[in-house]
Structure formats: structure tokens, C-alpha cells
Computed example of a mutant assay.
Amino acid sequence: MPLLSVFEVAPLVDGRQSPAALRVRRGTARLLRDLGFAVVPELTLSCGRRADLVGVGAQGDVVIVEIKSSLADFRADGKWQHYKRACDRLYFATLPEVGDVFPRDEGLILTDGYDATIVREAPARRVPAPQRRAMHLRVAQTAARRLHEIEDPQPRHALAV
């Protein structure tokens, strides 16, 4: 049975994402979903950094995708180095016009905002079991909390009369 919402459901946008970055996120999330991943955007990691997309696969594998909408975006941001400790595979995702300016030892996904393809597979680096469990819990709790906020967007104290 599909889950329906009577509320307008907008993507998680906090004003930092450009329209191009949101296109990359949509196309990349669709690809990951088609590959069997449950995907959560804008996930805060234990290190305090926020990953653009985190996916958990059917076998428990964890992927992180760092979205880069331009060359300037890539050059200005080095936080992705911290993500390697939290995932089994790290990908960059971008638009075709940005090109392949990314490190060769990381994966690459190209998207037009609708379809996406893995251009370069990310090498597997298995995270230790305790870290994997912590990531699974972080993804599950974040996704469940967001779903609940869609179904019941009013804080409890706002319902009191």
C-alpha cells in the first residue's frame, strides 16, 4: 500500500543548494534507488559534517555521494575527505558540463537531473562493523523522523488549546 500525504512534500532545501545541485541530487537519488539503495539526503554524520546523499543497500553497504554542481563548488569544498571513514564507497555526482575533475580514486556519477549513470565505480572500503551499525541507526532514525514530520508537521505543544 503506497504511503500518501495530504501535505505538500518539498525536497529538503535549506537555501544552500543551488537549482543545479538539486537537479544532481534528484537524478542521483533516482539512480541509487534503482540500484536498491534506501537514500537519505542531507544527513549529518557523527563527525558533524553533513553528507549530501547517503544510501544503504540491501546487504547493508553504505554509500555517500558528494554533490558538486560546478568546478568552483568542488574547489571550494574539501569536507568530502571526512566521508571516507563513514562509508564503504564514496562517489561524486555532477552534471555532464562540469566534466570529470574529481579524484580518480573516488567514484563518479553523471546526471541530467532525471537519469544518472555511474561513470567510474568507487573502490570498496569496508567500514568496521560498529561504524556500519552506527550509520544504519543514523539513517533509520533520520528517515523515520522526517517521515513523521511529514505526517504530523505541527509540534505537540502547538496542538494544545
Rank of each mutant, 00 (worst) to 15 (best):
S18Q: 00
A58P: 01
L3C: 09
D77C: 08
V127I: 15
K84F: 12
T44C: 09
D52W: 00
V98P: 09
Y83L: 09
R25C: 06
T142W: 07
Q141K: 14
P123I: 02
I67M: 05
G36A: 01
H82Y: 14
W80H: 12
K68Y: 04
G107Y: 07
R120F: 00
R120K: 03
G107L: 00
R75E: 13
F102K: 05
P19W: 05
I118D: 06
D105C: 06
R145C: 10
G78R: 15
G78Y: 10
P11A: 07
P2C: 01
A29W: 03
D105M: 02
D100L: 03
C47K: 09
E66L: 05
T28Y: 04
D105N: 15
T94G: 09
R120Q: 04
D115C: 08
L43C: 02
R30D: 06
Q131V: 08
H136Y: 01
A140Q: 13
L31H: 01
D152N: 15
I150T: 10
R75V: 11
R138A: 14
A158M: 13
S70C: 10
A51K: 05
L159A: 11
C87I: 06
F7W: 13
D115Y: 10
I118F: 06
K68W: 08
R120V: 06
R33Y: 11
P19M: 01
T44R: 15
T44G: 02
H82K: 11
T142G: 02
A122I: 03
C87Q: 02
K79R: 15
R145N: 11
S70K: 11
G113W: 07
D52G: 00
D152S: 15
R89C: 08
A10T: 12
H157I: 13
L110Q: 05
G99L: 04
K79S: 14
P123Q: 00
I150R: 09
R49L: 06
G55T: 06
L4R: 14
H136W: 15
G78F: 10
D112T: 09
E66Q: 11
L95R: 11
T111A: 00
L110E: 07
L108W: 10
P155E: 13
G27W: 02
V24L: 02
T94D: 02
D100G: 02
R50H: 06
A21L: 03
G48N: 07
L35E: 04
R125Y: 10
S70D: 09
L108P: 00
S70W: 08
F7I: 11
G99W: 00
T111F: 02
G15Y: 08
R89L: 05
D105K: 04
V98W: 04
Q17R: 10
D61K: 01
R156P: 07
A122T: 06
A72Y: 11
Q59A: 14
P155L: 13
G36F: 05
A158T: 10
E121G: 04
R75G: 07
P103C: 01
L159F: 06
A72P: 09
A76N: 14
R30V: 05
R85F: 09
R138Q: 13
L12V: 14
V119I: 15
S18T: 15
G60I: 01
R138T: 12
R85C: 06
A134H: 11
G27F: 00
S18F: 03
K84D: 13
